[in-house]
Structure formats: C-alpha cells, structure tokens
C-alpha cells in the first residue's frame, strides 16, 4: 500500500511540526487501512459458526395491547367483488367472536365465509362493497426486484397525507418449498398489514400480505393461490393484465380505495 503525503509534509528539511505530522500520518494511515484486511477482520467477526436460530415468523396483526385487555386484534383486507366479499389473512380472523370491517368511518359486520387450508387466507362477506373491488392479474408477473406497494389500512391515511406514493416494497426471492406459492417482499411494513393487498405498478393485486419472516422481509400469498381460493369460494373476481391505474398514479391511493380494516372481536 502506498500512502500519498501532501508535498509540504513529505519534503525533507521542513519544520519540526511538519515532520511530526508526517510521522503521524505514516503511522495512523497504515493502521486504519490494516483494519480492512481479511487477516485482521476475522477477529471482528463472531467466533460462532452455527446458523443462528431464527424466531418463528410473526403474523402482522395489529394488537397494541394484549388481546385480553383490548379484546380485539386488527389487520387489513380488501374487496374482491361488487358483492361485499373481502379477502384477508386467515390468522387475522381466526377464533373471533365477531368480525367487523371498517372503512372511511363506517363499520359493518362481516361473516366468515371460507378459510384456505394451504394458505393464510380467509374470505369474509359484508353487506356491500365500499370503494372499489380489486383486480387480479390474469398472468402472474411478480418477479424479483419488481417494485410494489403494500400497507396496513390504519396507516394508509399517513401515506396519503404525504401525497402520491408509487411503491414501498420490492419483490425478493423465496426460499425453499415452505415458501412456495408466496412472494417475498423487502419492506418495513409492520403490524396491521396482514391481509393487505400487494399492488404492482398496474394497480393489480400480486399478493396478500401474510407474515414477517425477518427484519424487513415479509411473505405474501401469491396472486395464483389467492385467485384459486376465491374461485373455489365462488367469488367472481376481476382479472385483467391491463393497467387499472395510470402509470403515474399513486398505488397508495388505489390501495385505500380497495382496502378496509378488519377487526376481530373476542
């Protein structure tokens, strides 16, 4: 490694201060540079070589207080037809005494119609569709590095207040057969997002948020599994490969148009 010195410091015969500074640079710079050499960096790494045990995936259900105290938990869902059907995550509505769907200040009762066995999905029925029904892609197009939008309904007003939002997540890669039928998202979305739609650049639903598997990594049930579940439940869903929003339109606003808050009362 060569270290270039300022001319005045490198020249011999200068003042004592200059020579002292020159020595300081010569001493300090090699040490600092040495800390990035492979031989030294080994000491900075943990000696442990075993694979760390990961915490089990966390469902993204909002429950600020323990359920026994609050008596409820909440997630997100979205309308999938014009007859009041709402798709959400199964774990949001499991073992609920009552299920309510809340949107734009209106709350209505919902009935659990069906739950998926292979996937974390559940279908609810409300009296009417509020806002728009989602549209699914005919052909599945989500690919790694694609940008998408997903958010919990309770936080959408905050997103909307900031103006148009095109994306807040990117598609990652799934691991192993356990994650088959899912898409992985690199995102920091948090509790309350379970059941939220994953919207692509066309405003189409590419997935349904299911659970968090690591920091900034979330799994969503892919559109294929969601469509199969809805079809088996006799829901007449909308499918299209054409854009449902203009290219510059805010995905956050479309998410707000189709989404609702799902509340499970114990």
């Amino acid at each position: 490694m060569t270290v270039a010195l300022p001319d005045r410091l490198a020249q011999p015969g200068k003042s004592g201060i200059a020579r002292w500074l020159a020595r300081m640079v010569l001493v300090v710079v090699p040490l600092a540079a040495g800390s990035v050499s492979p031989a030294r960096s080994q000491f900075l790494l943990p000696a442990r070589t075993d694979v760390p045990v990961l915490a089990p995936p966390k469902p993204l259900t909002r429950a600020d207080l323990p359920p026994v105290e609050r008596g409820e938990r909440a997630g997100t869902g979205f309308f999938v037809d014009d007859a009041g059907h709402v798709l959400t995550a199964r774990h949001v509505v499991q073992a609920c005494g009552r299920i309510m769907v809340q949107k734009e200040g209106r709350t209505s009762a919902a009935r659990l119609v069906a739950v998926s066995t292979p996937y974390d999905l559940a279908l609810l029925k409300t009296a009417k569709t509020r806002g728009l029904a989602a549209t699914f892609p005919r052909s599945i197009a989500s690919a790694p590095n694609g940008i998408v939008f997903a958010a919990d309904y309770a936080n959408l007003p905050t997103s909307l207040a900031r103006g148009a939002m095109l994306a807040n997540a990117s598609v990652g890669t799934t691991n192993g057969s356990d994650e088959a039928g899912h898409i992985a998202l690199n995102t920091n979305i948090t509790f309350g997002a379970s059941g939220a739609p994953v919207l692509d650049s066309r405003g189409l639903v590419e997935g349904v948020v299911s659970r968090k598997t690591a920091v900034n990594r979330v799994l969503a049930v892919g559109a294929g599994g969601a469509k199969a579940f809805l079809a088996a439940s006799n829901v007449r869903l909308q499918e299209d490969d054409r854009p449902q929003i203009s290219g510059s339109a805010s995905r956050a606003h479309r998410a707000a148009s189709i989404s609702a808050r799902v509340i499970c009362l114990n």
């Binding site: 806002g131 549209t135 299209d240 054409r242 854009p243 449902q244 929003i245």
Partner: peptide, 10 residues
C-alpha cells in the same frame, strides 16, 4: 382504458 373505467366506478 380500464383505468378510466375504474376511476369512473369510484
């Protein structure tokens, strides 16, 4: 375009 229809529906 579908985007127009969706907006009109909204």
């Amino acid at each position: 375009p579908p985007a127009w229809g969706q907006f009109a529906k909204l």
